[in-house]
C-alpha cells in the first residue's frame, strides 16, 4: 500500500477516469489524515467520517477537475477545508458571549497590571499526560474556536489565509484565538491545581 505512487500519471489517470479500483488505495492513504484533521477541529468521529465522505463524493463527481498540478492529497484537503468553512462560516461570524472574557478581565487591576498572575504550568505542559490533558481541555472550546486554533497552531496557517477561508475579519479571528488559548490555559492550570 505504501508503494503506491499517487503522483504517478497512470494512477492519476485512473482516478480521473473514475476507476473504482484505484479508489480504495486513495481512500486508505488520505482518509486517516482527513479524520485526524476533522477530530482535531472538534468534529466527532461520525461528523468527521461524514465530512470525509463528502470530500470523496465531491471528488468522484468531477474527477476531471483535478488537474494534477497539485498533489492529490492537497487537492482533497482543499475540498475538505471548503466544506469545513462552509459549515462554520456563519457560526464563527457571530461571536457569542463567552465567560472566558470576564475571567480574563478579572485577572487585571484598574491599571491593567496582573492581579492574578499566571500560575506556573510548565510542569504540566511537559508532563507525560499532557496529550490527554489537552484533549480533555479542548472539549471546553466552541467549534469556531477549535477550528481557528487548529488552523493557526496545527496547520500553521497565517492570519489572512484563515480569515479568507473562514470568511471572518482579522478582529474576529483574534477574538476566537484569544478565547481558545485562554480557555485552554485556564483549563490546564486548573487541572494542575486540582492534583496539588
Amino acid at each position: 500500500m505504501g508503494a503506491t505512487n499517487f503522483s504517478n500519471p497512470d494512477f492519476l489517470e485512473r482516478v480521473k477516469k473514475g476507476d473504482r479500483a484505484a479508489l480504495p488505495l486513495l481512500v486508505e492513504a488520505v482518509l486517516p489524515q482527513l479524520l485526524r484533521a476533522g477530530r482535531g477541529m472538534g468534529f466527532s468521529q461520525e461528523e468527521s467520517e461524514d465530512l470525509a465522505h463528502s470530500v470523496f463524493a465531491a471528488f468522484l463527481e468531477k474527477p476531471e477537475q483535478f488537474q494534477g498540478r497539485s498533489h492529490i492529497r492537497t487537492y482533497l484537503f482543499g475540498i475538505f477545508y471548503n466544506l469545513v468553512a462552509e459549515r462554520y462560516r456563519e457560526k464563527s461570524k457571530a461571536l457569542e458571549h463567552d465567560p472566558i472574557d470576564e475571567v480574563m478581565e478579572s485577572k487585571f487591576d484598574a491599571h491593567g497590571s496582573w492581579r492574578q498572575p499566571p500560575a506556573d504550568i510548565e510542569g504540566q505542559l511537559h508532563a507525560k499526560e499532557i496529550g490527554q490533558i489537552i484533549q480533555e481541555c479542548l472539549k471546553g472550546l466552541s467549534q469556531p474556536q477549535r477550528v481557528a486554533f487548529y488552523l493557526r497552531e496545527h496547520e500553521e496557517w497565517e492570519t489572512p489565509e484563515i480569515c479568507k477561508k473562514l470568511g471572518i475579519t482579522v478582529t474576529n479571528l483574534g477574538v476566537l484565538l484569544f478565547r481558545a488559548r485562554n480557555r485552554l490555559r485556564e483549563c490546564v492550570e486548573k487541572k494542575g491545581l486540582k492534583k496539588g
Binding site: 499566571p118 504550568i121 510548565e122 505542559l125 499532557i130 496529550g131 489537552i134 484533549q135 486554533f149 487548529y150 493557526r152 497552531e153 496545527h154 500553521e156 488559548r181 485552554l184 490555559r185 490546564v188
Partner: peptide
C-alpha cells in the same frame, strides 16, 4: 505558556 500550548497541540 501560550506558545507552549501551540507546540503541544502540534506534537500530540
Amino acid at each position: 505558556q501560550i506558545r507552549a500550548l501551540g507546540s503541544v497541540l502540534r506534537e500530540v
